[in-house]
């Protein structure tokens, strides 16, 4: 498998470290303990599209958000996780403002 790192270009799998599901979100501190258990231990195992975190550990060191199909291994998009998270945060603040 090869992953197109937004900073380094397309690089082979050996340079990357897999972490897992990018959609799990760290709960608020006072969230119920069940949320925390889910965050740490419970993962879906989807067949098909999966948004996941990889680190370009043998390259620039960036954490990446990779949209990968778990069946075909086709990678549909890759961006820096920081950008994914920042846009998520700004969406959240937008929502709050609207509400």
């Amino acid at each position: 498998m090869r992953i197109p790192c937004p900073l380094c270009g397309e690089r082979p799998l050996e340079e990357f470290t897999y972490r897992g599901d990018a959609k799990v979100k760290r709960p608020d501190h006072d969230a119920p303990i069940e949320d925390w258990v889910g965050y740490v231990y419970v993962r879906d195992n989807p067949k098909g599209d999966h948004q996941e975190h990889w680190r370009h550990s043998g390259g620039c060191g960036s954490w990446l958000t990779v949209n990968r199909n778990t069946v075909s291994h086709i990678i549909n998009s890759v961006e820096e996780a920081r950008q994914t998270e920042e846009s998520r945060i700004s969406e959240k603040t937008q929502e709050k403002k609207l509400a």
Binding site: R55, G61, S62, A81
Partner: peptide, 15 residues
């Protein structure tokens, strides 16, 4: 630890 701290920064608290 480097990987973990980078994760904490880039993913958990990019702000």
């Amino acid at each position: 630890i480097v990987s973990h701290l980078e994760y904490c920064h880039q993913v958990l608290w990019p702000e």
